[in-house]
Amino acid sequence: MTETARALWSLGGIVLAVLSLAAGLIWVERRLLAVWQERYGPNRVGPLGLGQVLADTVKLLFKEDWIPPFADRPVFVLAPTIVMITVLTSFAVVPVAPGIGVVDLNVGVLFVLAMSSLGAYSVVLAGWSSNSKYSLLGGLRAASQMISYEVFMGLALMGVVVLAGSFDLRRIVEAQRDGWFCGPQLLGLVAFLVAGLAETHRLPFDLPEAESELVAGFHSEYSGMKFGMFFVGEYLGVILISALTTTLFFGGWLGPWLPPVVWLLLKTFVLIAFFVLCRATLPRPRFDQLTGYAWKWLLPLTLVNLAVTGAIRLALEGP
């Protein structure tokens, strides 16, 4: 198989797999939440309630595709697409297995960080263009939250970069043959996971859309598939953060006996389950506490982590 065909097959496979995973995740999340909260969850449509996803999609497609007359039309329409496009594009640099992956950028880590920064525009523009009070407050909260957590999201990964000596995600996975980075980079892992929760607005950091305070926050005025795209974008984000954490800290596709792809999926799924567990158990903090964690705890923590990692690496290997 030529290089071109290989890249195209990977591309098609990854996009298809990721989108169906995101759809499936809606069902998985509701079922897992039900397990942890001792109830049934969706179990009526089809076997085990699996048809629920399909039913929801059809329902969303037939809902009114409303653009408010008081909204800023072009921005209002554009905003939900941004989150989906940026998250979906980030998957291009995630190495799935040896020989499977869309593109190997030597700035892979930076590319993912850049895309996640662009994703912030989606919620901010949605909140601003909706021209509604709840949306505006949600958008503002989303902006502050995302930029607060972005600062150390990148810094948390720099420990890994120091250890692997590369921004290339494939080489970072290869560097973990002798041991996963989750041990030596435990602080980085914790900071990255917290940042990941905040960047995807998952509970406990879902203040931009806190339904008990802001109705639906930045997407209060969205309906139909435009709302659906925020929804899909959020689930794609969860998969992306889980896949990235696996790649950067848990050895990516590396593992004995099973094929590499299976290992990646297994580890990613465990992390997704962790995200859902966070939602099932943790209460929502106040907004000043949320930014407080970022600036007062996690930023100094990642800076110390980076300094210590650099010193140990130099002491062990010499300049």
Binding site: L11, V15, L61, D65, T81, I85, L88, V102, M229
Partner: peptide
């Protein structure tokens, strides 16, 4: 390696988003 698959990927993502919007606009 060549970076062009990234551009194709971006195009696919934009196409998917636009497609979803269009279908929803037609069916809603």
């Amino acid at each position: 390696g060549a970076a062009w698959p990234l551009l194709v990927h971006l195009a696919v993502a934009i196409g998917l988003a636009a497609g979803m919007m269009a279908v929803s606009h037609l069916l809603g």
